[in-house]
Nucleic acid binder design. Structure first.
Length: 174
DNA sequence: CCCTGATTCGC
DNA sequence: GCGAATCAGG
């Protein structure tokens, strides 16, 4: 497959939302994370929150590469830190915050990695969210831990439901 | 060992 | 332009 306008657009969106390259790759399908990263760089939107590291630009070559004195385009430093939320979704464990105002604005949450049964893979968290059968129903879609169908957060909910089950905690397979 | 992005370079 | 291979980290 190729980089259609729509795919590029989605790439930009997801990347700016802070999703990792591999997540974007699986989201887009038909591409590897390398492809995503490569495209990101070609589009010029790399470095999401980096310090203006001189980037030693290591010369990797068998045939002797002449070092390019070319400098990095100086990132203005601080700006990056876009409070990127890799996995906002909901906050399962304890919700201490009264959450007074809905805050209409920054709800850049779910669209990013929401999963339907369609794009669930071996490594996506299958924790269900919402009312099954309704439009809003979806799966967490985060990175599931190897050997479990859930991401770290939801695995903790799935296994060892309450307190005191300390001994014999093999989190096995389901 | 899992993952992350960064870079190079043959295609 | 594309992306696998590779590198450098966490």
């Amino acid at each position: 497959m190729s980089w259609t306008d729509e795919r590029v657009e989605l790439l930009k969106k997801l990347w700016s939302e802070g999703l990792s390259a591999s997540q974007i790759a699986t989201e887009l399908g038909e591409v590897t994370r390398n492809a995503v990263i490569g495209k990101v760089h070609r589009l010029g939107l790399s470095g999401r929150a980096k310090s203006p590291t001189p980037a030693p630009a290591r010369p990797r070559s068998k045939t002797d590469r002449p070092e390019r004195p070319e400098a990095r385009p100086n990132r203005p430093a601080t700006i990056g830190n876009t409070a990127l939320a890799a996995e906002p979704e909901e906050m399962p464990e304890e919700a201490p915050a009264p959450a007074p105002a809905p805050k209409a604005a920054d709800n850049v949450v779910p669209m990013a990695q929401r999963c339907t049964i369609m794009n669930l893979t071996e490594s996506t968290c299958r924790w269900p969210l919402g009312e099954p059968g309704t439009e809003s129903f979806h799966f967490c879609g985060g990175k599931s831990n190897p050997g479990t169908p859930y991401c770290t957060v939801h695995a903790r909910m799935a296994y060892q439901p309450v307190q005191d089950r300390r001994r014999d905690r093999r989190l096995a397979f389901l």
